[in-house]
Amino acid sequence: MDDFMTPLLSIKNVNKQFGDGCDTCLQQEKDVLIKNFCPVCGTVYSCQDITFDLYPGEVLGIVGESGSGKSTLMRCLYFDQDVTSGEAFIRSYKDGKANMFEESAQQKRYIRNHVLGKVYQNPLLGLRMNFSSIGNIAEKLIAAGNRNVGHMEDRGRALLTHVNIPTYRMKEAPKNFSGGMQQRVQIAKALSNNPPILLLDEVTTGLDLSVQASVLDLIKQLQRELNISIIIVSHDLGVIRMLADRTMVMLDGKVVEQGLTDQILEDPQHPYTQQLVHSLV
C-alpha cells in the first residue's frame, strides 16, 4: 500500500468518562443520559466510542459546541489525561503495533517528545512563562535527548524567526509577550522536534482578528512546508473551513458526522451540524 494511504494515527473506540458509572447508565441503552451526563450517579461521558484515522499530511478538523468532548479527546491524545478505554496506534512508533494508551509512563513521554506536538488554547499550559522563549523551545529538544547548546540555540532562533518573533526578543520570557506572540512561541515549541503529528486546541480563540489571520496563515504555511499531519479543534467554522481537509462534528461526546470539510459545510446531514452551519454568518 502507498505511504499516504496508510493512516499515521489510528484511534479506535476511545472512551473517556469522569465518574465510575452506575447500573442505570452502564447496563441500559445510553438513552438515560441527559446530553452526556447520567442523572443517577453524576458520571460524565466525555468521549464515547470515538474512532478515526489521521493520514500523512492531512489536516483533520474537529468542531462541536463547548462541552462536546473535543478538548478532552485532545488531552487524551497528548496523555494529559488517561483514557477510560480504547486504543491508539502510531505508524512510526513500534511499527504501529503498540497501543499507545497502554504504554508505560516513560514510553508515553517518549511519544510526546518525539512524535507529538501540542498547542494549547491557553499559553499558560503549554509554556513556562518565567523561562526564556528560547529556553521553552530548548525544553522540548532537551526532553528528546539533545545536549548541544549551540544546536538548540540555532534551532530555536530559526523557529522563532519562522513564527515572526524578533531575534532580539528570543531571550525574553513569554510572560512579557502579547497573547498572539505567546501563541506563536507555543507553535514554535510544538514544532521544535519536527513532530509528524501536531495537535492544535482552539489556537486562535481569544485572539483578535488580524492576529488570528496571521497565526492561521502561519499554520497553513508550516503544514505545507513540513508536510505534518494536524488535528485542529475549534468551534469556529471559519477556521475549520480555511484549514481542514476533513472534518468531524462532535456532540455530547459522540462523533455525529464526519466527511470532507466542503461536504460537511455544503450539505450537512445531522440536525446539529445543520444548525451549526446555518448559524455561520
Binding site: 529556553g135 532537551i142 526532553a143 531571550k171
Partner: peptide, 22 residues
C-alpha cells in the same frame, strides 16, 4: 517525584541552559 520515577530530568538541564542563555 514522578519526574524522578520516570528519570525525566529535562528540567535540570533546562535550568543550566537558561543560565547559558542569560
Amino acid at each position: 517525584k514522578k519526574l524522578h520515577g520516570e528519570r525525566e530530568y529535562s528540567g535540570a538541564w533546562l535550568m543550566l541552559f537558561e543560565q547559558i542563555m542569560r
